[in-house]
Design a binder for these strands. Sequence first.
DNA 1: TCCGAAAGTTGATACATATCAACTTTTTCA
DNA 2: TGAAAAAGTTGATATGTATCAACTTTCGGA
Lengths: 234, 234
Amino acid sequence: MQQSVVERIKTSCTVVNVNKDAFHFLTDEQKELVESRQVTVAFKKGEIIAKQGTFTTHMLVLSEGLAKVYYEEDNKTLILRIAAPGSLIGLTSLPQNNNVFQYTASAYINTTVKLIELEIIKKLALENGRFALALIDILCEISIQKNGRFFCLSHRQSYGKLADIILCLAGNIFKKSDFEFALSRKELAELSGMSTESVIRTLKHFQEDGLIKITGKHFEVIDPEGLQKICQLG
Amino acid sequence: MQQSVVERIKTSCTVVNVNKDAFHFLTDEQKELVESRQVTVAFKKGEIIAKQGTFTTHMLVLSEGLAKVYYEEDNKTLILRIAAPGSLIGLTSLPQNNNVFQYTASAYINTTVKLIELEIIKKLALENGRFALALIDILCEISIQKNGRFFCLSHRQSYGKLADIILCLAGNIFKKSDFEFALSRKELAELSGMSTESVIRTLKHFQEDGLIKITGKHFEVIDPEGLQKICQLG
DNA sequence: TCCGAAAGTTGATACATATCAACTTTTTCA
DNA sequence: TGAAAAAGTTGATATGTATCAACTTTCGGA
């Protein structure tokens, strides 16, 4: 299958974290243990999957849907990433002294997650080096992605931030240049760290410049290279 | 030993990453392997210890000094953290497909680092679960700290950002309320993500309000609680 | 020790973007 | 189906902070 243009575009701050499958390194016996103990839970759009500050007994594996992972403080929120199928939530609570969720996760759309006890994860990491190394890999990936997003939100200005988010959505979530967009303007604003009004004005600008086309909820990226250029300029 | 007031103050965005000693979980034999193969290198103030984009063959353990760890893009820099003794640099390059440094590290002051081959780290993580788990712990800590810093730099305004950095320096690096400050105003600005001029003006404000006292290169935190309040307000 | 460069400081100005307010369109659900 | 609520849009205004320019102080090296 050929990659579309939007998928090939590299953005500095992908908000979506691509997760590898660590479980694939488990032995059949270990896989069975995980499967025998795991529980699947479905969340409706808008529901909170995990709340920052509550005790983490289980790690979550997002199996279907899309979740917003965000950090909360003083009534302000910072979206850390969008969790897509395969993403792990709650891995950072593995250390004994951080056994609460370090962020909140809520469902953008209807979402199902599998719950696996952290104690089992810890046990498996201890006895299976390849699995442990895979977890390390995932944590490294998340760290690298976060650096890019951090840079983008703190060093670019509105045009660059929004262009980046649009490319991320097209290239990493929907994986095509046109898509029905489920998120509100307010949520787009939250993602790009700007006000709703600024998002609207900037989107309008992008349309006038022929970079994107919006018809109701339908988004189309017309000039990905142009958007990428805006990302880089600031 | 009693903790000083500045050490007890919690800030949202500690720029210093407190690292645990993962090597302590190694067997005597494994420790010997590490020690027999490790090399120690000294860097002078200002020198580059590791450059973003170059191939990572070794992980670095900072043993003495202080280093600035920063992300570079388009001639702009974003300081990710200050590496203090015990900090690991280059751990995020462990995954096969990210085998280049993901950030640059340079010496704030004269600094020595130990170099350990990544291959050895990988081998040890594979055969020693407790060591692997300790690495996971460290990555989680870094991740959590980065969330706080990310939030601080993107959601607070200048007063809050600078107050936070001052509390971090006092509480986490110098571990006392008064210290000789080696960093220039420009570097303080870089750390808090603002312009040099704004840093100067804000410091002046803090002095006038009796929060801190500066005499030449000598810094003294007079009212840590007051600074903390400023952090929280924004 | 003195000169030039770097660091530090101050005030004036510019600018990006948030905020506010008024309004329109769309959606929701009783 | 119609009324209320939510989402989207637009223009005017406010504000925080960067930028620029001029200047002073400090520091390093010939």
